[in-house]
Design a protein around this nucleic acid. Structure first.
Lengths: 356, 356
DNA sequence: AATTAGCACTCGAAGTCGTAGAGTGCTAAA
DNA sequence: TTTAGCACTCTACGACTTCGAGTGCTAATT
């Protein structure tokens, strides 16, 4: 059914009033509001219609009305304006991205920041990227029994591992292996690193100690791990500040959900660059059935994509939250894509991937 | 004042009953309990004394009694038995440590595990280590404008960063720099990396592009960062399962505290290898004033030390929690100290420090 | 036909009261 | 020193009342 323009106006007013006040909205309260120049009785009739249509509901007879999930959906799709990011917030965000850190750190900071400026728990994760390959190998000799494996991945992340062997390995042997790995393991996804390939490399290197297998094992491990990227969640305690989560049981369900990485990975991502909004029961996850999720995507090329989102009560300021997320995702994409000048802008630092 | 043995017995019984039931303990309830073969009236008198001494308190006149922080303290110091770790739990813990991952991952997993088996939020962090130095450098050439800095630290952690320059840098130039850094930057703490040293190295390398400064900057940055180690918190939602945290405001304070890394760093650590218990107001942090903290230390040598602890209601099973923490800390120390065999025990893998 | 004033009606929030029961402290006896 | 017994205190809980907010409906108005 098509909504009359007045109904739309009223629905919009109800949603916005409710977002503001967290109290069911009465016909009288709306009468006070600007524009619609009709009496509370008329508004009452309209609200009744909206209730019949499933867009509003009453907690009980003598209370005002609150939007249903469907009501929010229409609000989000058709009625809400574009949210804005205050200049103070914009400045905070820019500031955070101005001195970037390693990949993981940037993403984690972005999540913290998101949580701060939305007052909601936030999560961030890199998108699954199936096509990661190794681009460059280096075996760094430390001492007779110790060396470091360094691998540069196609998504510009650098991984390493310190290996200690019971047998002595010479520096020359390591260099030979380095060269062999660079020749036969680069540009290949994990699936192509067959036992045959490893055995062949082993033979070519004249290796009898098993080092080759260790290195190959490490490489395969990190290629596998690079698919399922590390997830980060911040600001969980802010959930408890919202009146709808004064019910501990409800809060516990949502927080429990957020602390389960497996579950989080199943959250839907926006299709394109936009922001995706999931309202209440639109969430497949049981624990989120009476909460909402707003999530944005960032894409910095080179397999460096991910999502960043928040979880909160269905009564949230979708316009503002979406705007903020979108702004942050944009900043994130930019930082990750470009790297940022060190010092007086002479030297650019890439997306190095280290920790702490 | 010295406690009579019967008073001790009664205090112990009250604490343990309360830990179990979460309800104020009445004189009658204690009468039912084993050993002490006296009437409820006698118990009542003793309890009254214990209340005078500040070890017990009554929520109101016609309620049973609960231990005060002081009461818990005496219980913990003198009365509680040694907690045990069930064989199932021991197995779970062992299992987790059997297939170890990179340093950060191991610690983070240990924290998750701790939270699981204690049903409390858990935190873990590496101890501040002032004496970290670089042990080995390597600059890995990727292409004309890109290279990777790899640094092995004295605590066996390997750090790296991918650097992209606006100017061309030759492979030979990198090798020269590698050698120079290995000669003059190894074994030195961050404080000794003076601008003079950097300029000298720059001159020795004949570097006019500023690469030397970038590398030095990175090295100093990671040495600094290695001091304040990364903190991890898990299982926050389990806090809400405890009846004392049905008060959302109280829960929010504690969870807020836990999400603030700065604050967490200020939590006291056990002096030696033991377990430290902080009960209620013994905590300096305002937010923890009506919660308790149990924390254990692990020490794997090589500057690889840290603490792992839980936060929960003052009414917690200190004996069990302490035993579990101690067990996990022990496992952690072992794993981090020894590294673990790959494959059929031929090759040992060190504490490589990489991510994801 | 749409709007509105007016009013009866509903229902929850909050306060009051009374009761039941848990648990204590005290007294007096053992 | 211990204990039985009992008066006393205080909360938890349900029943009842009142208050007010907000509605839905009807009838009058535009």
């Amino acid at each position: 059914m098509e909504l009359s323009s007045r109904k739309k106006q009223i629905l919009k007013a109800v949603v916005e009033d409710y977002i503001d006040s967290a109290e069911p909205v009465s016909s009288k309260a709306l009468q006070g509001r600007a524009d619609l120049g009709v009496s509370s009785a008329t508004i009452r009739n309209e609200m009744n219609d909206l209730e019949q249509m499933g867009l509003l509901e009453q907690p009980h007879t003598s209370a005002g009305r609150t939007p249903t999930a469907q009501g929010y959906r229409i609000y989000v799709n058709e009625l809400m304006g574009r949210g804005d990011v205050s200049s103070v917030e914009a400045e905070t965000i820019e500031g955070k991205f101005r001195r970037p850190d390693a990949l993981e750190q940037v993403v984690s900071d972005a999540s913290k920041l998101t949580s701060q400026i939305t007052a909601l728990p936030s999560y961030a994760m890199q998108t699954v990227s199936l096509e990661v390959t190794a681009q460059r190998f280096e075996l760094v000799h430390v001492d007779d029994r110790t060396f470091i494996i360094v691998v540069l991945l196609s998504n510009k992340s650098v991984q390493n591992r310190l290996v200690t062997l019971p047998t002595v390995t010479r520096s020359e042997q390591l260099m030979r292996l380095s060269a062999l790995f660079n020749a036969s393991f680069t540009g290949k996804p994990e699936s192509e690193m067959t036992p045959e390939l490893i055995t062949a490399t082993e033979r070519a290197a004249g290796d009898v100690t098993g080092v080759t297998a260790v290195i190959a094992g490490f490489v395969m491990e990190i290629l596998l791990k690079s698919r399922v990227q590390h997830t980060v969640v911040s600001g969980t305690s802010s959930l408890l500040e919202h009146p709808e989560f004064q019910d501990v049981e409800k809060a516990r369900r949502v927080l429990g959900y957020l602390s389960n990485e497996q579950e989080l990975l199943r959250l839907p991502a926006p299709d394109s660059d936009g922001v995706k909004i999931l309202i209440g029961p639109e969430n497949v996850a049981e624990a989120l059935r009476d909460s909402s999720v707003v999530v944005a995507k960032y894409d910095a090329g080179d397999n460096l994509q991910g999502i960043i989102g928040v979880v909160g009560p269905t009564r949230m300021d979708y316009a503002k939250v979406a705007a903020k997320l979108s702004y942050i995702a944009g900043g994130l994409a930019k930082v990750l894509a470009m790297g940022v000048p060190i010092g007086p802008g002479e030297i650019t630092q890439g997306k190095g991937d280290e920790e702490r």
